[in-house]
Design a protein around this nucleic acid. Structure first.
Lengths: 297, 297
DNA sequence: ATTAAATGTAGTAATTTTACAACTTAATAC
DNA sequence: GTATTAAGTTGTAAAATTACTACATTTAAT
């Protein structure tokens, strides 16, 4: 029981207290709302104030502030301050992170960095570790690995090619739909096909999944679990990243997918051990010839 | 002088307290080190403990804990707890983020996500906003935009193609070195060439920069400022992301580059205004035909 | 052996929390 | 419509917890 509570505590800590305050607003009493306003107006001041100062600022009594804290599932005022401090630490994630029309370069740069980091955090929490482990297992045992994606996900597949190519394993990558199909028709049961699609609704990718499976290949989907593509896959690595629909471009999901590729590549090298690490180093060294030496410029 | 102190305070605040503890280790006294150990061993417990409990855990007296806090430039124990809470909120960035040989899937997944987020934070702080603004300016006025990269940066260029293609502006993208060269020979002064390279030492890319400039095109480098490539560019967008050399693969830098592409694309649409937004929506709508409808599955 | 630094003890000050009383509001009966 | 009561809200004052200060003691260094 103590463990369970502890877990919940951690979970709550990851949730933003400031958002919680705004959401909880209706359930507050008149005086509690006064406290909420003062805190939301200047959270930075709040964490450096004592309960007495804050009570004065909100023009309420000290116990009211205390009751306010408890209503938000904190142990009391000091605990509330701790939660508040954590919320403020995460690059002010309570403010609107969506880019707006009148935003200048400073604003949109900040917002995009922050929303990207936020979606990585979400992705991290949603990703299923056992599945990652199984996929790494499959990849290390595969005789041939294919990476296919279309549109924005094509560049993710491209990146996967770049990474896995260094492992000295046969890697297949095509942008062309027909080539992808033909390649899958030649699959065997020792092959792994990784299909990348944020929505999981791209028709030709779903078809490719079917072709690959009918040839006994193992199909891994980096896509949404309940999508048509997801249903056709042997294993699905899903990333619950809320997509920024404002911009009509997949941004956050693609970064999360790339990070997942990094993770798979890392898992791959770790599984293969030191011998393979040396191989990586050798591949890197061969690139030297095409580069300017660091010391000669 | 007051300003300078203020700046340092801001700097210190943004700096992780846990890292500060480890770095400061030499300056601690014997008992203070005991306190440091207890906190580093279990920071989550520390923020929920009173000064008395913590003192007992470290087997020292309460004032020692208090002195320990002050030595780290905090006002006292409660203030220290606030800083500690903030540090823990940022995805525990104090722990060793480098993947190690014996790491299991849970560990390396966590570490890669965290190090990716951390490098985005570093990138965000290092990026030069006025340069971004100028690059967006150039891109909106360009008659033709080219994106070139090699190796790992090729997929970044690929991604840029995907994004900017939707803007209905002539976009050039080649993976082939010779095609890149030929393309640059046909440049005019209204063209913008964006070259992507983490190291900035890839010979053929430097040559391409020279060719493009000799044809009066504007060359933008997403690369390191002092690199051979950087020196050949009209404008350089540098991202000071410390690369993970352990894995012999560029990971963090590429994510930062992609985020930068997102930012440029966003800046581009914002500059072009609403008329262009509609165009984006149109491009997105045409994709519908190749997709399974969300309601029909 | 002397001095400076480090650590702990005990008392004090600050802060938070609790218990209870006063007040407000809303609902029901008259 | 007014009185009555009950539930909920807010504040006061005292208790409990927590953190801090001054000073004494110990430890280490020269």
């Amino acid at each position: 029981m103590a463990t369970k509570n502890n877990y919940n505590e951690v979970f709550d800590a990851s949730m933003n207290i400031l958002e919680k305050i705004t959401q909880h607003n209706a359930a507050f009493s008149k005086s509690e709302r006064k406290v909420a306003e003062v805190i939301l107006a200047n959270p930075q001041t709040a964490i450096h104030s004592s309960i007495a100062t804050l009570a004065k600022m909100a023009d309420v009594s000290e116990p009211t502030v205390n009751r306010f804290c408890r209503r938000l599932d904190t142990k009391g005022y000091p605990d509330f301050k701790l939660h508040l401090a954590q919320s403020l630490a995460n690059g002010t994630p309570y403010v609107n992170r969506h880019v707006e029309e009148h935003d200048g370069p400073e604003e949109y740069t900040k917002k995009i960095f922050e929303s990207t980091m936020a979606s990585l955090e979400v992705a991290r929490q949603s990703v299923d570790i056992p599945t990652i482990n199984r996929v790494v297992d499959l990849l290390t045992q595969a005789q041939k690995i294919s990476f296919f994606g279309l549109g924005a996900s094509a560049s993710v597949a491209h990146d996967a090619l770049n990474k896995f190519f260094r492992f000295n394993v046969p890697i297949i990558y095509f942008e062309d739909i027909l080539m992808q199909r033909m390649s899958c028709m030649n699959c065997t049961e020792d092959d792994v096909v990784v299909l990348i699609s944020h929505t999981g609704r791209t028709k030709s990718l779903v078809e490719i999944a079917q072709i690959a499976r009918s040839n006994d290949a193992t199909v891994v989907g980096i896509t949404s679990k309940d999508s048509p593509l997801g249903k056709e896959c042997n294993l699905v690595l899903s990333l619950d990243v809320p997509e920024d629909t404002d911009m009509y471009m997949p941004m956050a999901s693609r970064i999360a997918q790339l990070t997942l590729i990094d993770i798979l590549a890392t898992g791959f090298t770790l599984r293969r051990g030191n011998k393979f690490r040396e191989n990586l180093k050798r591949v890197k060294d061969t690139l030297r010839g095409s580069r300017f030496d660091k010391k000669n410029d």
